[in-house]
Design a protein around this nucleic acid. Structure first.
Lengths: 239, 239
DNA sequence: ACCTGAACACCGTTCAAGT
DNA sequence: ACCTGAACACCGTTCAAGT
């Protein structure tokens, strides 16, 4: 489980000790097993998040991650089987940041609203993880599973038929992931430019769609409210 | 526009001609400009689609694409600026396969249903394109723009307020793209395994959710019907 | 068990040289 | 204008050697 490990490897040790040349942070460890492990999954996760926040996902390479942790790239493979494993660690950490607190304290509608906006906002900053999440078995992601547990209980307590809960969550999540991409799109993505004349109805729709706030937020709010009212109608029904 | 070019470069020329050693398909062109261009965008698109269908997106490399077309990898850069350009060509071709025919012939609800299912089915087989589409300016994708034009006209003719059309399409598309990923997920993605005891409500929901058909189809149908009824309520209203 | 260092089999992309 | 061939600056991953 993340967060329960004894060692803290988020900050690499730079103190002078055996296996480490003294002095500045440029010192190299010599080959061979160090007296204490310098890496663990929690430290790798922290370093990966830090790297992503500074350099983006293009900058998240195994070599850069190793450099940040002051180890050789191959050392990472003692703790993760692949780069995909690193992305899973990051994904599971981010999921723990999603706000599920409204389930149990607010109405079902408000709880879904709070959860969905928070979920979208978190992953809008991390869209390269979306292809990974979508295919991720929940067994490999304890925080993600914990989120589903809280949401499922909220749906059940609100009178949602048990056999429809997974489908409803999947539908909401699909909308959330797709909408996370929209946030990253350029503002003029729909500007028809020189193709305007050949596409008059769409061009008129684009030109008249300007409103307050970000377009991605308008579309997300519109779709989310439709899903909440449509799915909400299932409460109290039999399967 | 795709499909209107005179040259056909989908099948590379293997006939013996100047700049080409005679005989089998293993012949090498010698350096220098050939008397007739061997590449064009339509041929690159066809070759990329063929490669993807045979080897998947992991197999779509510039080197493999060049090999399929019997040119050196660097030759591709006379016709596309980057690999992303190749993905755009493929994306725009695939969009032309989406069924928009029900707009203008069926009810708004049926037209949206037909379009959405078709759109999801096409891109479920091509999920690696989704991050590309989501950020793609429509000017660069004429077929994609044409699809939006048809859909916009269908919405307008059904009494949809013009200033909400783009948001409604974006919301539907977001749901469609997110749902396309679900189709590719393993069937046991939600199986809690050893974590079942700690997550009883979710586990019960997963165990009771088995129904006829693919789970991804059940969730897509549920969300799509919610979106259709929620968005459909906007027809005839003012902005 | 857990590091280093060297190596492997790739990648996308650039560019001079050739016709 | 549009090809070839060589090169560049990477990638993720493997594995023997070391402690």
């Amino acid at each position: 489980m993340l967060g329960t490990t004894k060692e803290r490897a988020g900050m690499p040790a730079v103190s002078a000790e055996e296996g480490h040349t003294a002095g500045t942070g440029t010192g190299r460890r010599r080959a061979g097993r160090p007296s204490a492990a310098v890496l663990d999954k929690a430290g790798i996760t922290t370093a990966a998040l830090d790297l992503v926040s500074r350099k983006g996902y293009d900058g998240l390479t195994m070599a850069a991650l190793a450099k940040q942790l002051e180890v050789a790239p191959s050392a990472l493979y003692n703790h993760v089987a692949s780069k995909r494993d690193v992305l899973l660690l990051v994904e599971d950490h981010l999921t723990s940041l999603v706000d599920v607190s409204a389930f149990g304290s607010k109405s079902w509608e408000d709880a879904v609203r709070t959860w969905a906006w928070s979920y979208r906002d978190v992953f809008a900053e991390h869209t390269p993880l979306i292809p990974v999440i979508a295919v991720l078995p929940v067994t490999d992601a304890p925080q993600t599973l914990a989120m589903y547990e809280t949401v499922s209980k909220g749906f059940l307590d609100a009178g949602f038929p048990e056999e429809r809960i997974v489908s409803a969550i999947v539908a909401l999540e699909s909308f959330i992931f797709g909408s996370a991409y929209d946030v990253t799109a350029p503002g003029d993505i729909f500007e028809p430019g020189s193709m305007a004349d050949a596409n008059p109805h769409f061009t008129a729709a684009v030109r008249s769609s300007a409103g307050p706030g970000r377009p991605a937020d308008t579309a997300f709010g519109l779709g989310l409210e439709a899903l909440i009212s449509g799915l909400g109608a299932l409460r109290g029904q039999a399967g």
